[in-house]
Simulated assay, not measured.
Amino acid sequence: MFIEFSIYILTGIIAGFFAGLLGIGGGLIIVPVLTSVFLYFIEGPHLVHLAIGTSMATILITSLASVKAHHRHDAVRWDIVKTLTPGIFIGGILGGWISQYISAPMLAKIFAVIEFGIALKMLLDLQPNPHREMPGIAGRSVAGTIIGSISALVGIGGGALNTPYMVWHNVSMRQAIATSAACSLPIAAAGTLGFLIGGWNIPNLPDHAIGYIYWPAFLGIVIASFFTAPIGAAMTHKLPVKTLKRIFAILLIILAIKMFWF
């Protein structure tokens, strides 16, 4: 158990730092790492679901720490957070609940494809050209629902989708990253609820799991990420983020390949 818990803590250190730095929520690292770790320490057919559900739960804590740091730099657009949250929350519950009807191998491949796309975007530094203002309530609700459902389905915080969406609508990169971190809160809350409900009556789940959330992994990750997420958020304003994004993208490609062959 000591080795297993140590891996969770190390995962939290890395995921928390990059979550704060890039506003991504940490799930892009947490899900493939937990899937691999669970293969060694847990038996059962629901390992990918447990990895994604646990990732969602950890993002809730990581985002709190990250948002506090971004808020101190006055970078969070709370007006955008408030208008995106209703759609995000509905989409998050929907994505988490739908996951129970998707097989673990298929869910792993969906995650891999999305992660590879995000990594490619980071590696090539592709950004949409800002050419319009944020849409009204109806448009934000639709966008929030789509972002929330996809993010919850694969266990990511939504920053990889929220950030380019905001930049496309003339929000500065610095504010988009900070605001995406804040939007990860409703995504994580709704996704966690969805995975709890979706896995509530599933048989043969491991000990210490409630629904699709495995609590030893949750505790190990959040103990570390709660402290490293604010460090990453503070470093957003000091480190060469573009260079770090490219390094991070290469790591994501490796993890995506691993997930695709789950």
Rank of each mutant, 00 (worst) to 15 (best):
R72P: 11
I80T: 10
M56E: 08
S99G: 04
A57E: 07
I221V: 13
P105V: 04
F262Y: 15
G157V: 03
I221M: 06
P32K: 12
I24K: 02
H71N: 15
I114W: 07
T11K: 07
V154H: 04
I150N: 09
S151C: 11
I213R: 08
R174S: 13
L126Y: 12
P164Q: 00
S6R: 02
M173N: 04
S141T: 15
L64F: 15
M122I: 02
M106Q: 07
R246Q: 13
Q127S: 14
I250S: 13
A224L: 10
H237T: 12
G198I: 07
G155P: 08
I213N: 00
H131N: 15
G159P: 01
G95A: 02
I257C: 11
G198C: 06
I14A: 13
G87I: 03
T179I: 09
I88N: 07
E133T: 05
S36V: 14
F41K: 04
F218C: 00
D74A: 12
T58I: 12
I102S: 05
G158L: 08
L47V: 06
A217F: 09
T192H: 09
I253H: 05
L196H: 06
F111K: 00
I221N: 08
I9S: 06
I202K: 06
V113Q: 01
V167C: 05
S151P: 12
S141R: 06
L126G: 04
A112D: 01
A209K: 05
E115V: 15
G232F: 10
A119H: 02
M56D: 06
P206Y: 05
F17L: 14
I150H: 07
F89T: 00
L60S: 14
P105S: 07
I223Y: 05
R132Q: 10
A143L: 13
A108D: 08
F17M: 05
V241Q: 09
R140M: 15
A176C: 12
G95S: 01
I61A: 15
P105K: 03
I7R: 03
L255V: 12
I202M: 11
F2W: 11
H46F: 14
L252S: 09
G27E: 03
L107F: 02
A19H: 11
I114Q: 00
A233Y: 08
L47P: 05
F116K: 08
L64H: 10
I146G: 10
Y8K: 01
V67W: 10
I137E: 03
L193A: 14
I88R: 04
I150P: 12
